[in-house]
Write a protein that binds this DNA or RNA. Structure first.
Lengths: 109, 109
DNA sequence: CCCATATTTCGAATATTCCAGAAATACCGT
DNA sequence: ACGGTATTTCTGGAATATTCGAAATATGGG
């Protein structure tokens, strides 16, 4: 992942409202959650929610699939995975990183 | 880590310039890097760099120690560690996360 | 085609970010 | 105390973000 892409995703998650949205979607699991239900849950204006969802979708962290009149939102695990990979890579370069992180996450794949 | 703290750190890293600064500091390792050297390296105005450093220091991702007239900046691995922990935790809740991430990072500690 | 529900887009107010030049501050050597 | 280097703070302007209500769009049912 390129630095600018990572920064864009970090920025997208770096807003408390958007982080709440994303976390809620992660917890919703594979079945996802409708925009309307998200709105009830988070208690924000529909337009505000739509705006933030657009930002998360724009960087690929969230996807939407239509089911009738409702739009189901899903957290994109792959994108988050890539982001975490990037952060770990940036954090642990050439042994410059103390053992805490290196040992805490041991790459299996 | 609380959501707002995580969001603050993500936001701090979510700017390409600041992410470059942080990455440079990580790569500088334990000896860190002086503000002035950082400025040469990244070719940005001193005031701009100082502004961004302040943001990174504010969320604990960077620390500074003075050595004579120069200020040495260091990436704070612990804070990044905590942030990655948070992201992994938010991303892999109650088996709702596909095995890709779970298996990629196996907790050792 | 019309209605009802779901969601987005538009418009606007307020707040915040980003950047850089100029001035101020901090520290060291003499 | 003075001069020099290192760094921050101040100031300000352009750009962008955040939020909401109102209006517009999309979808399915009758």
């Amino acid at each position: 992942m390129k630095l600018d892409d990572a920064a864009a995703r970090l920025e997208a998650l770096g807003n408390p409202t958007r982080l709440k949205i994303y976390r809620t979607l992660v917890r919703a699991g594979e079945e996802g959650m409708a925009v309307g239900r998200l709105q009830e849950r988070l208690d924000i204006a529909a337009s505000t929610l739509s705006h933030h969802l657009k930002a998360l979708i724009g960087v690929g962290l969230v996807t939407q699939t239509r089911e009738g009149t409702t739009l189901i939102c899903n957290a994109s695990y792959d994108e988050m995975h890539g982001l975490i990979d990037y952060m770990v890579a940036e954090c642990c370069v050439e042994g410059s990183c103390p053992p805490a992180i290196v040992s805490k996450f041991k790459k299996v794949a």
